[in-house]
């Protein structure tokens, strides 16, 4: 139970993937201008993360490790991720064309969202020891990808709220747009660091 809570808090707040590991910065800056696309982007990322988290765990545990082809990890993982993104893209197009239009270019770009490859690779390092999955490895991996997705969505939402206000303020010309967004994100990171003491 302790470990479940530790994984949740670390991935959502104190070790947030955007603010502290800088994974997923491109969609973070690209879709955080308004709240609505930010929510749909967050949901899409959580979905992709869950599917690819499950798939990569299965392939890693039952194909890559038994055959000792650990050096193929990166290639195999990125292929799994690319195909699950393709799958979700087709599904969203079918279910909700409006949402598809709102997500636009950022949907295929989830493939190159570092957070997906990053969390799945970190899973193989955290929950496998000596070439074998540790106890409850699968459950922990799924929990970790889910928590990472939630953390991503939380920061994306907060940032989109701030940026909606920021668009109306009078910033110095050379800091306008992206630079000020980085500075705001940095202050947000500082605030999140304040929660590091949670045990």
């Amino acid at each position: 139970m302790d470990k479940v809570l530790a994984i949740l808090i670390a991935n959502i707040i104190t070790n947030n993937y955007i603010l502290f590991k800088f994974m997923g910065l491109c969609p973070f800056l690209g879709v955080s201008k308004q709240t609505k696309p930010a929510i749909s982007m967050g949901l899409a990322v959580i979905f992709v993360l869950l599917i690819s988290g499950i798939m990569t765990w299965i392939i890693y545990a039952y194909v890559i490790l038994p055959f000792h082809i650990e050096y193929m990890r990166t290639v195999v993982f990125i292929l799994i991720i690319a195909s699950s993104v393709q799958f979700i893209e087709m599904m969203i197009l079918k279910v909700s064309p409006v949402l598809y239009k709102a997500l636009g270019i950022y949907l295929p770009l989830i493939t190159t969202n570092c957070i997906v490859l990053g969390v799945t690779v970190i899973n193989t390092e955290d929950f496998f020891a000596a070439g074998k999955p540790i106890a409850w490895s699968f459950a922990y991996s799924v929990l970790q990808v889910f928590a990472a997705g939630l953390g991503f969505m939380l920061v994306l939402l907060l940032m989109s709220g701030i940026r909606e206000r920021l668009a109306l303020t009078d910033t110095p010309e050379s800091l306008d747009g992206l630079p000020i967004a980085f500075i705001v994100a940095s202050i947000m990171g500082l605030a999140f660091m304040g929660l590091l003491g949670i045990k």
């Binding site: 800088f22 992206l178 500075i183 940095s186 990171g189």
Partner: peptide
């Protein structure tokens, strides 16, 4: 980590 974002923002 927050320092990285700050430095990049100011440099940009």
């Amino acid at each position: 980590a927050p320092g990285a974002l700050l430095v990049l923002g100011l440099l940009m």
